[in-house]
């Protein structure tokens, strides 16, 4: 039982990160029906910027928590800027083009970002500085670390904040209106281009936080870390129903738990025919299953016809 509890804790932490990244995919898709495959790279940039800032500030003797907050505080604006630049330079010129064009552009942007990061931060896997001492807490035979608690609570807070932004503010209303019908929203005096750019920027901010969290969780950052994470988060977004914000949150958390439990128990269930190396496969099995059985995703009634 304690092993099971531990696996669920592992899965929830992983899922919280997936959910944060999945939100970026789903928000953009909800508004312009573009799968922004460069989103995973924004997560990577967030981690890398934080890596550099922590590296620069670590010898200064500031309290570790302050350093990490400053690092996140630097990573977020950098990622927001990248999100904005991406939308402005790569996607806006293709508005109204066939859907394949921006999709391929997104893959191109992803490759560019990856290689720029490789030039700046080298191709070595970087040891993400562990300046805050990790405390472990034990309960019911399971262990939860302070980093896991931080990831869970920060992502919960950010998701609540996002939900409040989207469903309780004028900006959120404008976003939802644009998602519903950009032309009509435009007639109502909403600047659709501005809203779309803002969506990218908000998604990028979430990605930056996710990047810092995932790098400090695993203690490693790498210029190619974003692609796999991005794909998993994309699966999570599809699982929840792409374009649907609560769906992305639910999909992310579910996918994390499915992965952890799957990797933990597949060996026993199949008599060691399949092993834990199939961990990464679960996300894609889920993706296929969802596309076959329920293309609109768990909560994704609204954009089902478009998916």
């Amino acid at each position: 039982m304690d092993v099971f509890i531990q696996q669920v804790i592992n899965g929830l932490t992983l899922g919280a990160v997936y959910a944060m990244v999945a939100l970026g995919y789903t928000m953009v898709y909800g508004i312009i029906q573009l799968i922004n495959f460069a989103h995973g790279e924004v997560v990577m940039v967030g981690a890398m910027v934080a890596f550099s800032v922590i590296g620069a500030l670590a010898p200064s003797g500031l309290p570790p928590l302050a350093i990490v907050l400053v690092a996140a505080g630097c990573a977020i604006p950098v990622c927001m800027l990248i999100g904005y630049a991406m939308e402005r330079a790569a996607y806006r010129p293709l508005r109204g083009a066939p859907r394949l064009a921006p999709l391929i552009t997104a893959i191109g942007v992803s490759i560019i970002l990856q290689h720029l990061a490789m030039l700046i931060w080298s191709r070595n896997p970087l040891a993400f500085p562990q300046i805050i001492k990790v405390e472990s807490y034990h309960f019911a035979g399971a262990t939860i670390t302070s980093v896991q608690i931080a990831i869970l609570s920060i992502s919960l807070a950010m998701m609540v904040g996002l939900a409040a932004l989207v469903y309780r503010t004028r900006l959120g209303t404008a976003m939802r209106a644009t998602a519903h019908n950009p032309q009509v929203a435009g007639l109502m005096g909403i600047d659709a281009n501005r809203i779309i750019a803002l969506t990218f920027v908000i998604g990028a901010a979430l990605a930056a936080v996710a990047g810092v969290m995932v790098a400090s969780y695993y203690g490693i950052a790498h210029y190619a870390m974003g692609s796999q994470l991005g794909l998993k988060a994309f699966c999570a977004a599809v699982l929840g129903g792409i374009g649907n914000i609560p769906g992305a949150m639910l999909g992310g958390v579910l996918l994390g738990v499915v992965e952890a439990l799957g990797a933990g128990y597949i060996g026993d269930l199949t008599g060691n025919v399949f092993g834990s190396n199939y961990q990464d496969v679960f996300a894609f099995i889920v993706l296929i299953a969802v596309l076959v059985l329920r293309p609109s995703g768990l909560l994704g009634e609204r954009v089902g016809d478009r998916a």
Binding site: V3, Q6, Q7, N10, G11, L14, Y218, I220, M225, Q228, E259, A260, L261, G262, A263, G264, Y265, G267, N272, G275, S276, N277, Q279, D280
Partner: peptide, 20 residues
């Protein structure tokens, strides 16, 4: 029984929890 990851795996928690 042998456990496996891949040459890109960074999340070993599931495997390690099982082993523990």
């Amino acid at each position: 029984a042998r456990e496996q990851g891949t040459n890109k795996t960074v999340d070993w928690k599931a495997v390690l929890t099982k082993l523990k």
